[in-house]
Design a protein around this nucleic acid. Structure first.
Length: 267
DNA sequence: ATGACGGATCTAATCCGA
């Protein structure tokens, strides 16, 4: 069976429900994981997505900040959230599905941005980010013997070609060695495969985020790959394609992140 | 070195993002 999953940091789902509808209609992913919905559960535009066939939804929101959601055309067996670093933030939600007759777990993350200065003493937000990454190291791609897919805004661009200038970004939060090494350690310890880099050569520049603070994001093209799709090996072997929907950055009133879609042929 | 933009909030000025 064909199966597809998308991830998108929407930067306010109420403001951009229309863009989400356009995206779902055009690309038809089976599952969409959203981050930074910036609303409470009862404010989530559930009906807008249900009418397009995304009847199964798991929402973990809070007022004004953060918030994650999973919307799906396929039945959701169960869902749970984990409060990483015990801050009470809504930065994770997981849901279980049956795909091609097998149980499959989806994790949706919104990792803290980490503030401006990469110094855990001067900047508590950076300390929070590193602790969050540390706690992710116990999450495995085959926990409970269920193969998993992990997606989301991880707010770290791990490789040299994941940023517009490796040299100029080494001291910028999202590409400092302590972060990139930490994220690669999460991947290694959990036996996760980076599906975007499995599909797109490591030498190729690859971005999913461009700052709002640029007059012409496409001309300057100072992007970063902050959004990720990982999976257990047995799912990685069945990956067909990765699509980065770059044109979404040019839509009217866009998010600063663009959607990423992974398409599989599951047996 | 700074600021550029954009969103949410006790709708005005402040915090936050990365």
């Amino acid at each position: 069976m064909s199966f597809s999953i998308a991830t998108w940091n929407i930067n306010s789902v109420r403001l951009r429900a229309g863009l989400v509808e356009d995206f779902l209609t055009a690309h038809q992913p089976d599952i969409l994981c959203l981050q930074e919905i910036k609303c409470m559960n009862d404010q989530f535009p559930a009906k807008n997505f249900k009418k397009l066939g995304y009847e199964h939804q798991a929402v973990h929101g809070q007022k004004g900040y953060h918030g994650v959601a999973i919307i799906s055309k396929r039945p959701l067996i169960g869902n749970f959230s984990t409060d990483y670093v015990s801050m009470g933030d809504t930065r994770h939600i997981a849901a279980d599905f049956e795909l091609a007759g097998k149980p499959t777990r989806i994790h949706n993350f919104y990792v803290p941005a980490g503030g401006d200065e990469p110094d855990i003493i001067k900047n508590p937000k950076f300390d929070h980010k590193l602790k969050f990454i540390d706690e992710m190291k116990v999450l495995g791609a085959m926990d409970d013997d269920v193969p998993a897919i992990l997606v989301g805004d991880l707010n770290i661009a791990p490789y040299e070609q994941d940023v517009w200038s490796h040299k100029q970004m080494l001291k910028v939060v999202s590409h400092t060695p302590v972060e990139t090494e930490g994220l690669l350690d999460v991947m290694k310890k959990g036996a996760w495969t980076d599906l975007m880099r499995q599909h797109i050569p490591m030498e190729e520049k690859l971005y999913t985020w461009w700052s709002y603070r640029s007059k012409d994001w496409a001309a300057s093209n100072r992007g970063r790959r902050l959004d990720h799709v990982w999976s257990a090996d047995e799912l990685a072997k069945q990956l067909n394609a990765i699509e980065v929907v770059t044109e979404a950055r040019s839509w009217e009133k866009p998010s600063d992140h663009v959607p990423v879609i992974a398409r599989f042929d599951l047996v």
